[in-house]
Structures are given as structure tokens and as C-alpha cells.
Amino acid sequence: MRIVVAEDLYLLRDGMVRLIEAYGHEVVATATTGPETLEALLKWRPDVSVVDVRMPPTQSDEGLRAALAARGEVPGLPILILSQHVEQLYARELLADGTGAIGYLLKDSVFDADQFIDALERVAAGGTAMDPAVIAKLLSSGPSNRRLERLTEREHDVLSLMAEGLSNQAIGGRLFLSESAISKHTTSLFGKLGITDDDNNNRRVLAVLAYLNGV
């Protein structure tokens, strides 16, 4: 994959580039400020990019705004946002356009390199990779709360993993269940929530996220 890395701290940027290259992907450009990020994203149209939220010149949410602006120009441009803190507010903004190919994870997620690269690939393929803490909060608040009470505990687990962006196979791996057992659970929970089931994993995840986001 061709990847753009936007991160202002040298140590983190360097480490990230090395990690990505160790997995056989190519880093086509790096950026260290908000405007640079936007420019690189639009110029290279990478398969996926890793973008930090807080960057110069204002040290506020430059990276996030650059990502949203780039996706405004190129709908569905795959971007994985990495941050020192995750906020439901930002997650909702990122999910609002409903086009998918978006990720929002804590910087800690690079600790597990396999899972991090897996998340990158998922986002590149048009899927999502959402932080579990954000998903937990989305599940426990908002307008969808009441209807979620009807789910069994197992269905609840499946729903949160699905909302993080995992496929049935990956969910099965996490919960030590067979793929067919998971698909049984998904059919049942989709019925309870009134979401139409879809064979396409990405579209299915988007439906869940849209539901949780109260769209």
C-alpha cells in the first residue's frame, strides 16, 4: 500500500514509518503540519494515511481538520486518525459523512503491530477501525440506548466488536466462537435493531455505526 504519515513529533513519525515499512508497505510522503497534511493527502491520494490530531501551527485539532477537509474534497479517502486521547465528539464528526474508510484509534494501538497494520488494511479496504473505548461510550449513551437493552450480553459483545470494524471471522477469533455462530448472533441482533443485514462487511459496519451515531 502507498501510505502518507502525518505526525509532528519526530520520534513517533520515524517509528511509525519504520513499522509500516517493516510490514512491506510504502510510505510515499510524511507531513508535520496541518496544511502540509492536507496538501500531501490531496497530492498523493494514498491508499491509506495515518494522521495525528494535534499538529502545528496552532497545536489544536489541525490534523483532524485537514483529514475532514481532504475527505470533503475526495469522499471516502481512507484515513486513520491517531491521537493521545479519543473523544466521542470527534468520532461522531468523522463518521458523520457515512462513507466509511475511516479509523480513529489511540496512539497506544501501535503497541500491537499486527493489529495496527490490520486496522490500516481494513481502513484502506473501505472499512473502519474504531477505538473500543469510543464504541463502548457510543453503546452506553445516545438515542440508541433504549433499544440496545433488548440485546443479549453475547450480542452486545458482537455488536461492539463489529462497530470497531472487525469482520465476522475476526470477531469469532476474539470471542473464541465459530464464524457461523457469530453470523447467527449478527442476524439476530440486526433483527432486534431493525438494520438490514448485508453480506458486504464494510456496509454492515457502517450501518451499525450510523445506528450508534444516531443518524
Binding site: 490530531v53 494535534r54 497545536q59 489544536s60 485539532d61 483532524l64 493521545q84 486521547h85 473523544e87 465528539l89
Partner: peptide
């Protein structure tokens, strides 16, 4: 951090 990044309202 959100206060630094977005201000009071957000």
C-alpha cells in the same frame, strides 16, 4: 485536550 483543541463549547 479537547479544551485546548476546540475551546469551551466543544
Amino acid at each position: 485536550p479537547v479544551l485546548n483543541e476546540r475551546g469551551l463549547v466543544d
